[in-house]
Each structure stands twice: as structure tokens, then as C-alpha cells.
Design a protein around this nucleic acid. Structure first.
Lengths: 410, 410
DNA sequence: CTTTCTTTGTTTAGCAACTGAAGAATCTCC
DNA sequence: GGAGATTCTTCAGTTGCTAAACAAAGAAAG
């Protein structure tokens, strides 16, 4: 009945590399068992990886009655990748090694101007600084991942940054990047079905299904910020009513807090006069601080938000049969301690398939820089995992054929 | 920038067959273009399919300046499949040809007893009847798909039915089956990302992402009936509050209608005395009839339900970046006319990625028998599309390896 | 210490599926 | 009735895998 399950993969080399990364340390026999490939194939593939310097042998395991297994692991410092997270308010830049571990990190508030040239110049400076500070040979840097809330809006920045740094640039969504970062750095299993719930100024989710990142036909996946939690709720900028973001996003929490005089004073909020992005983040941090220090109004506000987020998370888990949910992003980095138990309770008690398996809810160990780390991980994936082979779909078919195909993206 | 997108597939033969099915009529050159394979490969694969009798040549296309293309299409009557939908109240059984078109159909109310032996005997009778009534050679029937709301509960029935009919049986979820049915019978594109919203007694969704059915790690995907639409709503049997099913499912609609004396009389409802399943379906039908005849209270009830369903559908579309949403299942077969415009409006006005692409909302042309048709389509897929090749994941790894893998299901 | 058995890892031949290029067949247009 | 265009087939060659034999390294038993 439950024979060996199978998972398609881009290429054997990439699959084996991925297994080694996910396992940390593993033997050839372990790889054969885990991949379903024969020992012979593993032998050849591993030799290639060792020749390329990507993998190294690291001692022996205890004998299980015969010859001892030679253990393998990633040669973590063979290659590097840069990840840049372009937030509303900050530029965060990391350099990671092959294992996705952060080697160097810079985070700086964004200077005033918003035109691509200025932003790109700032980013390029940080990138150079981060590579230099780690003393890494530039030839060993595979590329640069640039992630933001609306990647399509930064197409030009990407091109400019490519020229400015001399590194190949890939663009992606910050929530998706965060999910890939969690996946790559091994917190979740290689074939897990999971989501990274990302809370910055807005709320989004990166989705990985059975080990494969799901981006959707137009790259607009995981818009959990616009999950409906009240059909009669307040109107949202998306046109609908009762969206999670409007009911319980950081901006909503801050707005409510500002209406509360006592809390505003106690937490030292910036008040409603100043501009949008930066103050929201700052005030949300202030509220979280107040909550940590036991201010009951702050706690109540955050717990109210958490209830909504938990309901949306449950909806997501029920729709996708999630195994793992990781909380990440700047806002969870600050207030995760409040949200975590509420989400855990909700999913323990009300996940519909809980008899089949639980949903493990975890706080990302590096929630604040998760998108940047993920951006680097995307580079590692896209450079080390060769293009996914398969069957091409045409952008357009000959006119006499019925138009049955839609364009698949990325 | 946007080069030819690629899609992985189980096997070339299956991929080509799938392309032919999706296209209806297509030439070898068309297949080469659509699949990315070379003409040579297509030539050999097609010859094999023709030899097997699955595909036939059907005349020529107009010349485009050289030799005319020989057009190919499925040999629809080369093979058949049986689909059985085991509902709370009914057994629906269809025989479809290779194209997923219904050749014969029987639907009968379930007799009283619920023990597997009795149910299987009843199903086997219907299966025999449906095959015989169509005068189809039993050797040409590939197998039988048995779908229900909780397939795992019918494991034994499956085995018994296999013995009783002599046909290989596959089990699946009714909502997933409905989605596959829509996909196979060509209503949506071959690589579409879409969901089939299934409303019977409960509400579920079958999900197809980029042409591939998504079932989730434990087969519990698309539980949209337990999407939260009111964090303070009434308690649901799943343990949570404000689930779509409790707020707006057929049972909820019927319960509200029964509280309304005037409506109960006007629609001739069965009343609250009788048992659960059958009366709910009957009363929901009665309410829908009343609505069609202009009863304002009935209309209001259904429109209220539709608002909730629409909000859940929007949530689903926003999470998965859906391109198409198909309404299907017995309840939409009856009341789809009320729900359709409400869902259309919601997704036209509030789908977050509507600037990138719309979400097409459609009513299934065969909503009542969609699960049964889908059940047959699953057989067609699983028999014609050989086992998906790839890398095996172990059920268990050696004890000394870190437990990074989870079992992938189906 | 020697023998036997187990387990790990490598090598080899062979198979299946695909590509690329050459060529045959069929049609249009001049 | 060529010349060129297009479709389809054929075939040699490449790739990536498996199966099976083999070599190497250790454990267990005498």
C-alpha cells in the first residue's frame, strides 16, 4: 500500500545536492536510500560534486556490521550568495555561504529618495561592503537575490543592480523568499509542505508544497493579508471587506493603539501626524515592547491581532494541508512571542486534518533577516539547481491550433 | 526575458496524450511546438499511440506553404472508465470514454443499510448495469474510480468493489475528483491553475495547480468549508469558530429556513424531525426552487450564503493566484444561478491580482455528476499516465540519519 | 589469526529516452 | 515542371539511469 513515495526533481545532481544540504551530514548509502537512486548512480554523482568542490567527505560513521560509511557534507565555504531585502524603510543585505548560513550582514535605514538610481547606488554600496567585510573572493559569489513586497515594480532596479555589482540578479517576493530561506537552511524537511507567514508592514505568505516553491501563474501567491475574516468588516484598499490586513495587520494595530491615549503615552508612540511606513514599524515595535513589559492594553491589542492571524493561518492550513508553519519577518521578530502561542493553540485544536498529522508552528530563528537570507537562498537554488527540465509550453501556438495553453510564468 | 516556460510531466507518452486530449485536434508539428520535444520524438511516440489504438489520424490541415499537417485526435471509444460517486444520499455511476464524455449514467438513492457489503453490492449492480446498458466490451474498461467525501473511510469498500467488479479501483476525494473531471473534459486549459468549488452537503475544493492536481501530504486539501469567516462566529464540529460551512453551508441554509415558518410552508420543507443527510439535500433543493420562483425570503437566504461563499472563494483565489474557479456539485447544480453572479462580482472587484489576470468563474455544465465524471477521469489519468517517475523518499531512514524526510503521500 | 559474513562503495555493460541532422514525402507557387 | 517550404521519418549518438559483478573494509565466530 504505502510503497516508496516518489518526488520528481529538476536533475539528479541537484536532487542529491539538496538531500545533502537538507540532511547536513549523510553517507552515500543514506543518499541512495533517500533518493531511490542506486548506489552506482550516487557514487558517480557524488564524485562529480566532490570534484566541483561543492561537497566534501568528513570522516566515518560507526560500523553497522560492515564497512563504515563515509560521511558527506556540503563544502559550505565553496560558494557564496548575496541576498538583499528592500523594505519600505530599510535595506538589509546578507552574504551567505552554500548552506544558507549568514557570513556577513548589514541593515541600514533607507535614505530619503526613492528613484531607482539612488536606491540601486545604496544597495550596491551595501553589497560591496558585505562581501568585503567577510573577505570573500568575488568569484565565489554566485549571484544576488533582490526581494521586496512588489518585485515586479523593481524590474529596472534589478537590471541596474546587475550592472552596478557585476553579479547576476534574480528578483522575488519577500514572503516567498522567506519561505525558501527557511527551507534552504534546513528548518523544515526537504519535501515538507509548509508556509512562511511573513509579517512586515503588510502580511503575506510564502508557500512551499512538497518541497517545491509555489509561485502561482502570475507570482501573486500567498496573499493571506487579503483573506476575508469578516464579510461585513471594514473596507480594504483591495476593494473587499474584512481583510486580515485591515483587521489585524501591524498598521491596524498601530492605528488602534494611537486612538488609546493611555497606551500612546505609555508606549511613547510617534502619533498620527507623520508619514506612513517608517512610523508604523516603529510604533508597532513600541507597542510590542510595552506588551513585553506587561502593559495590559498593549497585550490585549496584540492578542486581538493574533486571534485574527491565527484564524487566517488555520484557513491556510486547511486549504493546503500544511505540515509546518513558520512565523517570520520583522513584525514577528518583534512580537512573535505573543502570536506564537495563539497560533499554536488554534492549529492544535482546530486544524481539520489534525488526526492525520499536526501542523508544527514555529518562530523563525532569524525572523528579521529571513527575506534577505531567502533572497540569497534563491540564488543558491537557481545557480546550483539547473533549469528545471521538462516539456516546453509555447508563448503562442500556431493560429490554427486551439488556444488551450496559458503562459506559465518563471 | 520570458523564454518558453517548461512543465515537468510524468512521461513523454502521457504528456503527448494529454496534449492531444487537451487540444482536441492537433498535428505532430503542433505537438512538437507545444511540448518542446523534437519532431523525431513526437513521431515515434505518436506511432506508438496509434499502434495502441489510443490515437487516430483524422484528415489534413490546410497547407501553410508545404506539406499539409496530418491531424491527430484521441480515439475516444478505444477505452472506457467507470466513475462512482458515493454520496450521503445517492450513488451516482457513470461510464465515460477516453475523452471523459459520459456514455452512460445511473443515479439512484442509497438504500437504507450502511455496512460495506450492502453498499458495495449496490454499487456493483449499478456498475454492471451502466457498462451493459452502453454495450461496451468489459475488456475496454480501464478501471473504476470511487469518490466520496472521506475516501479513507471507504478503504474496505474499495477492496470489496474491486473483487465484485473485477475492475481496478482507485479511491479519491469528491471535490478533487470534480476538479480533475473539469480539467480532463477540457473546460480549463491544460496548465491552468484552478479550483473546483464543490458544494454537496458540505463544502470542499479540489485544487489543480499549473495542470497538476494538488492533494497535500495527507490528502486533506481544499477544506474550504473550514475557512474562517468570523472569528467570533458559531462553533463548528471541527473545533473552530465561524467556519464557512457553519455560516453558509447547505445545512446552515436549511436550518435557517426551517426557523422561518412562512418560508417552510411556502417551500414545503421536510421540517426538523427527520434525520440528517437526505432531508438537508431535499430541503436545500426546495429552498432553491422557491428562490427560482421568486420567493424573496428564499432568495435572501441563498444570497446571504453566497456572500460568505464568495468571501471564502476570494480568500482561496488570493492565496493560490487562481485563474479559474468552477462551481460544481449537487448544491451548485441546483442553486448555482444564485451563487454565480455573487462570486463573479466578488472576484471581479476584489481579487488582489486582478491587474495581472482575472479569475474566470464558471458553473460546471454537469455539476450534479461532476464527481462521478471526475472519478472516471482519475482512472483515465492513472491508467494512461504511467506511475510518476522520480526520486524515492523512504518511509523511514536509517536511525543514524537525521529524520529530515516526511512521507509523501500518493 | 583465520575464516566467513555483512556492508559500503566502484565499475561496467546495457537499456531507454531523447536530440540533432539528414533525408524522404508532399504540398504551393512561379 | 522545377524551386522552395513544410511535414514527417529515420538513424546515429548522447545522456542518465539500472543491474550486477566486484573490490574494499570491517565484525563475528572459530
Amino acid at each position: 500500500m504505502s510503497g516508496p513515495a516518489r518526488v520528481t526533481h529538476a536533475s539528479t545532481r541537484a536532487a542529491v545536492l539538496d538531500l545533502i544540504r537538507a540532511a547536513g551530514v549523510i553517507s552515500r548509502v543514506g543518499l541512495a536510500g533517500a533518493s531511490g537512486l542506486t548506489g552506482g548512480t550516487i557514487s558517480t554523482v557524488v564524485r562529480g560534486l566532490i570534484d566541483e568542490g561543492l561537497v566534501a567527505e568528513t570522516g566515518h560513521a560507526e560500523s553497522t556490521g560492515g564497512k563504515r560509511r563515509v560521511m558527506l557534507q556540503l563544502n559550505h565555504f565553496a560558494r557564496y550568495a548575496v541576498g538583499v531585502h528592500l523594505d519600505d524603510a530599510r535595506i538589509t543585505c546578507v552574504l551567505t555561504n552554500l548552506g544558507g548560513a549568514v557570513v556577513a550582514r548589514i541593515s541600514r535605514a533607507r535614505a530619503g529618495a526613492d528613484d531607482p538610481a539612488t536606491v540601486v547606488a545604496a544597495m550596491a554600496r551595501e553589497v560591496d561592503a558585505v562581501i568585503e567585510s567577510a573577505g570573500v573572493d568575488r568569484d565565489r559569489v554566485l549571484g544576488l537575490g533582490l526581494v521586496s513586497a512588489r518585485p515586479s515594480a523593481h524590474d529596472e532596479s534589478g537590471r541596474l543592480l546587475e550592472r552596478a555589482t557585476g553579479l547576476p540578479v534574480v528578483l522575488d517576493d519577500d514572503a516567498t523568499a522567506a519561505a525558501i530561506g527557511e527551507h534552504w537552511s534546513g528548518g523544515v524537511g526537504a519535501t515538507a509542505t509548509f508556509a512562511a507567514l511573513y509579517m512586515g508592514t503588510g502580511i503575506g505568505a510564502g508557500v512551499v508544497l512538497g518541497g517545491t516553491t509555489y509561485r502561482g501563474p502570475s507570482g501573486h501567491t500567498g496573499e493571506i493579508g487579503h483573506a476575508c475574516l469578516d464579510v461585513d468588516g471594514p473596507r480594504c484598499r483591495c476593494g473587499a471587506r474584512g481583510c486580515l490586513e485591515v483587521l489585524a495587520g501591524p498598521a491596524a494595530v498601530v492605528a488602534r493603539a494611537r486612538e488609546d491615549r493611555a497606551l500612546s503615552r505609555a508606549a511613547g508612540l510617534a502619533g498620527g501626524r507623520t508619514r506612513a511606513a517608517a512610523p508604523v514599524a516603529a510604533d508597532f515595535a513600541a507597542i510590542s515592547r510595552a506588551a513585553r513589559q506587561g502593559n495590559p492594553r498593549a497585550v490585549a491589542l496584540l492578542e486581538r491581532s493574533a486571534r485574527y492571524v491565527a484564524a487566517a493561518a488555520r484557513t491556510l492550513a486547511n486549504l493546503l494541508d500544511l505540515e509546518v508553519l513558520v512565523l517570520t519577518g520583522p513584525s514577528f521578530a518583534i512580537a512573535g512571542a505573543v502570536y506564537l502561542p495563539v497560533l499554536r493553540a488554534e492549529l492544535d485544536e482546530a486544524f481539520i486534518a489534525r488526526d492525520a498529522h499536526p501542523v508544527a508552528v514555529r518562530l523563525s530563528p532569524s525572523a528579521a533577516s529571513a527575506p534577505a537570507i531567502g533572497a540569497a537562498a534563491i540564488v543558491l537554488q537557481s545557480e546550483l539547481v539547473p533549469r528545471r527540465q521538462g516539456l516546453r509550453l509555447p508563448d503562442d501556438l500556431a493560429a490554427d491550433e486551439p488556444p488551450v495553453f496559458r503562459q506559465a510564468v518563471r
